[in-house]
Design a protein around this nucleic acid. Structure first.
Length: 570
RNA sequence: GGUCCCGUGGCUUAGCCAGGAUAUAGCAUCGGGCUUCUAACCCGAGGGUCGGGGGUUCGAAUCCCUCCGGGAUCGCCA
């Protein structure tokens, strides 16, 4: 079903077009935009002033005079303010919104897109635990998944497992050299031996030959080497999965790079690229010329020892994905900008569909960039542990009378929510520096603010129910909702689906984070100024209770889209 | 050196792609509000050369050029 806001916008466009037509004016752009002065505003008078041989202010008035509105319009009033045409929604829009939220409940806000999407995110090398840089990928990726699902797409998520790269050769070698600490979470124990192995390889460069040997063996299918790679990867991935699950992130499948070697897909795609005539031999390595795509340097797709590279296997992986989805989306760190551009160009050159790539900039530490190899990182597990402890203290302070189980449950929701919100609220293209003080700060107007609004809505309904004042089946009249804060809240809720639509199109998840905060803000305004349970008249109380129920539904949907828990009490 | 991203009050940040009405919020600071549905809330105040300069335009945080600062990257790592 079309978004009410978009339907309103369409009606505004229609009304303006026909008004312009009656005035004999033409334009390609009505200059419609949301505005702080109206629900939507048009700047069209600026553009057409010259054509109409008039000044913008006068023209705006003439246009508004020429507008005719049908009886059932969602448009309320149209006014000029100087050269601007300000359009507000009408009662129909407000009433429809309430009705629609009650009907659609959990599904309110989406369902207007269709098609299959394969979205890849996180895909961190299994050489240690996820760190605070990786989870920016996970959180952006998972939020996008939730947005796209909400929009109506059939979304499958994948974590592409590097089980053949140099790092993994080092990890599997490390497991033979050093003792693996079974008492630790396996991804952390893997990092320990990986860091030791790197130090050892640095100290004695002759050992590097052993790593090269292992890479050749694994690619040629040596059973024992494959087994040892698999063991290393399995240990790391099992730990990574636990961390992701703790953050409400899950993947539908974990395709392994090696599968594309063993299926022969890598060799096939190399042949396809060769057939374009773009390849040449460069000191024994096979390289692709992408200069016509703007890449000065060639792309290596086969080493001089005949083994494949990450890029080659990634090409085969994307070919496979392209055959199974209408849209492919990859969430990648800024270090992948160049390589993903080359990947897209190569796919294009062989006539295959290209992925849409969402790039996020790095999270660094005050002392510099993070590195698993050097052991310079803050693990996601550490962050989650600390933030949940911090959250527990906050709950304990505010609700000392509640049982420990309640406190832990809320602390978990609030802590995880705070981490997810803090990360997703910032545009992906901003690079950030991790800071413990800020990461553990609950005073910011972030996830807890939104969760608290939800809990407040739940509490009102609970209280009304206890007093026998709440009957969810009762028919109400939405037109009794006339307070400014009530109308503002309803309008804000109405725009949820247009935000989902925008996010699904632009792949910018921070928009939904900002919307959710604004929604909570609107609810808090309503909460502050309008009594619900204690409202004097029965029919007004009933319609306000319905409004609270609507807010509960939309807040819950928004939180769900952010992957943040919605506590009924906190 | 080339290429890409970022630069908005003390700090964090929206708006920029599709240029227009007093530049968005939060934190911090200062002041006010709990006998009324949980104050993880609400109200108010101060605080901004939108990195610098130039250009396009009736109009630039937004588009173009240039410089400065930060991040990323520049074939057989991923």
């Amino acid at each position: 079903m079309l978004s009410l806001f978009l339907e309103f916008k369409r009606q505004v466009s229609d009304a303006l077009w026909s008004a312009l037509e009656s005035l004999g004016l033409e334009t390609g752009d009505l200059g419609l935009e949301p505005s702080q002065h109206a629900d939507i505003a048009s700047k069209v008078a600026f553009r057409l002033a010259a054509q109409a041989k008039s000044n913008p202010k006068e023209l705006a008035e003439r246009i508004v005079d020429a507008i005719e509105l049908p009886e059932s319009s969602l448009i309320g009033d149209i006014k000029t303010v100087g050269p601007y045409i300000n359009i507000n929604v009408g009662r129909n829009y407000v009433d429809n919104t309430v009705t629609r939220i009650l009907e659609e409940k959990d599904s309110f806000g989406g369902g207007f897109c269709e098609g299959r999407i394969l979205l890849e995110h996180t895909s961190a090398n299994p050489n240690g635990p996820l760190h605070v840089g990786h989870i920016r990928n996970s959180i952006i990726g998972d939020t996008l998944v939730r947005i796209l699902k909400k929009a109506g797409y059939d979304v499958q998520t994948q974590y592409y497992v590097n089980d053949m790269g140099r790092q993994i050769a080092i990890v599997s070698w490390a497991l033979l050299q050093f003792e693996f600490d079974r008492s630790k979470k396996p991804d952390h124990a893997i990092a320990d031996v990986y860091i030791r192995a790197n130090a050892s390889l640095n100290a004695d460069p002759q050992k590097v030959a052993e790593i090269d040997k292992r890479m050749q063996l694994v690619e040629s299918g040596d059973v024992e080497t494959i087994r040892s790679f698999d063991e290393a990867v399995g240990l790391a991935v099992s730990g990574i999965k636990q961390t992701l699950l703790r953050m409400n992130v899950s993947h539908d499948s974990f395709p392994h790079e090696s599968a594309f070697i063993r299926s022969g897909a890598v060799l096939r795609i190399i042949e396809e690229i060769k057939a374009t005539g773009r390849t040449k031999d460069d000191n024994g390595a096979l390289v692709v010329d992408l200069s016509d795509y703007g890449f000065e340097k060639t792309l290596v797709i086969q080493r001089s020892d005949g083994t494949s590279l990450y890029t080659t296997r990634d090409l085969a992986y994307h070919e496979w994905k392209g055959e199974r989805a209408d849209r492919m989306i990859d969430v990648l760190g800024a270090d992948h900008k160049l390589i993903s551009g080359q990947l897209k160009a190569t796919l294009n050159a062989i006539g295959k569909p290209e992925p849409e790539v969402v790039i996020f900039e790095f999270v660094s530490l005050p002392e510099g960039s993070m590195s698993t190899r050097r052991g310079k990182f803050i693990s996601a597990d550490d962050l989650l542990e600390q933030i949940e402890q911090q959250a527990y203290l906050e709950v304990d302070k505010r609700r000392p009378e509640m049982p420990d189980e309640f406190k832990r449950e809320v602390a978990s929701m609030v802590g995880i929510g705070a981490v997810r919100y803090d990360i997703v609220k910032v545009s992906p293209e901003k690079s950030t520096v991790f800071n413990w003080k800020e990461a553990l700060d609950f005073e910011k107007q972030g996830a807890p603010f939104i969760q608290y609004s939800y809990a407040r809505a739940c509490n009102i309904l609970k209280k009304a129910e206890e007093e026998g004042k709440w009957d969810p089946t009762q028919k109400i009249d939405p037109s009794l909702l006339t307070e400014d804060t009530e109308i503002d809240l309803i309008k804000k809720m109405a725009s949820f689906d247009s935000i989902i639509d925008l996010c699904a199109r632009d792949l910018k998840p921070h928009t939904i984070a900002i919307y959710s905060r604004e929604l909570a803000d609107s609810f808090n305004q309503f909460y502050r100024f309008v009594p619900v349970v204690s409202a004097e008249e029965d029919d007004i109380r009933a319609s306000r209770l319905v409004l609270v129920n609507c807010a509960k539904i939309v807040l819950s949907n928004a939180l769900d889209t952010l992957g943040i828990g919605a506590p009924e009490s906190m």
